[in-house]
């Protein structure tokens, strides 16, 4: 990677001969600094991200209880065939992850953007609302799950108490995913709102003025002027939503360890490698599947970002 520096310097050297000597003198030291700045993170990334990831891929073809290396047994693609054929929670988990993704986009994200646009209008008390909506974001997902348990509990929960209903919010597999999604949305909305609000504050006021001079309505101004200008923020929001829905884990784990209608890939990975069960090979295979799905989204994102940069 350090080789990139001289090649980039090359055209400049031709243009400005006087400055070239200065650059060259600094060259060695700069190169060392740049080398360190690039090298250390690279080593860390390779050591902490790539090696474990590759090890997971390797482990996914084995059966291992995590203790002695000698007990490791290579089983080929058996873990993958087992997962897709005889492991009942797998397909529901994929489905739930997708529902999670779509739901986060449709409701909390649009709601968050809407709130941001409204709060951006500097109405009375907007600071208060801002804080109120953002407050859940500072709570961990595990805590959010616990707080909502107080609402959802069948026998002692607030919702059933107030409405006299007898719905098993966290236990009924047809309902609990949605109950959890509502709790997630409670937190996610504030998160998106804040990011979007920050973006809106950065939009050049003259754009709005120009739009209103041209007689554009509020709604038109937003969709035709503000929204396109906000492209970088929109991309960030898009990525955050995708990442949030793929890594969704803590809330279902705190509720029922990702079973009974709350299966998620991340929870299945944990069930198999954390705690009492030590199916490291099987868990790794699940993790690899999750990694593959994530990389699809990451690839799309990176392509968009790079195309942006090329412009």
């Amino acid at each position: 990677m350090t080789t990139a520096t001289p090649t980039q310097d090359a055209p400049r050297v031709k243009k400005r001969r006087g400055a070239a000597r200065v650059e060259k003198r600094r060259g060695t030291r700069d190169r060392l600094v740049i080398g360190a700045m690039v090298g250390i993170p690279t080593v860390l990334v390779v050591w902490l991200v790539w090696l474990p990831a590759l090890a997971s891929v390797a482990l996914s073809f084995a059966r291992w209880n995590g203790f002695k290396l000698s007990s490791l047994e290579w089983v080929g693609t058996q873990n993958y065939t087992d997962i897709t054929t005889i492991y009942p929670p797998f397909w529901p988990a994929i489905q739930h992850n997708l529902i999670w993704l779509v739901f986060l986009f449709v409701l909390p994200t649009t709601l968050g953007i809407l709130l941001a646009v409204i709060l951006d209008r500097e109405m009375w008390g907007s600071r208060f609302y801002q804080t109120a909506f953002y407050l859940p974001v500072v709570l961990s997902m595990a805590l959010v799950g616990f707080i909502w348990q107080l609402f959802y509990s069948t026998d002692q929960g607030l919702i059933n108490e107030v409405f006299g209903s007898n719905v098993d919010w966290y236990g009924d597999p047809d309902i609990n995913l949605w109950a959890v999604l509502v709790a997630t949305a409670w937190r996610h909305t504030g998160y998106i709102m804040l990011i979007y609000l920050a973006g809106l504050k950065g939009v050049d006021a003259s754009l709005r003025e120009a739009a209103s001079v041209d007689g554009a309505s509020e709604v038109k101004t937003f969709f035709h002027v503000i929204f396109p200008v906000m492209r970088p923020i929109n991309l960030i929001v898009l990525v955050i939503v995708v990442i949030e829905s793929l890594r969704a884990f803590d809330i279902v784990w705190i509720i029922n360890k990702g079973r009974n209608g709350l299966e998620l890939i991340s929870a299945l990975v944990s069930q198999n490698v954390i705690g009492e069960a030590t199916r490291y090979g099987f868990g790794s295979a699940l993790a690899v599947i999750m990694m593959v799905i994530s990389s699809v989204f990451i690839t799309i994102y990176l392509r968009i970002v790079f195309r942006e940069e090329r412009r």
């Binding site: 959802y152 509990s153 069948t154 002692q156 098993d168 236990g171 609990n176 029922n256």
Partner: peptide
């Protein structure tokens, strides 16, 4: 008891 899947043993 119905709805057992949503109930903790304490409840």
């Amino acid at each position: 008891q119905e709805n057992a899947l949503g109930r903790t043993w304490q409840e």
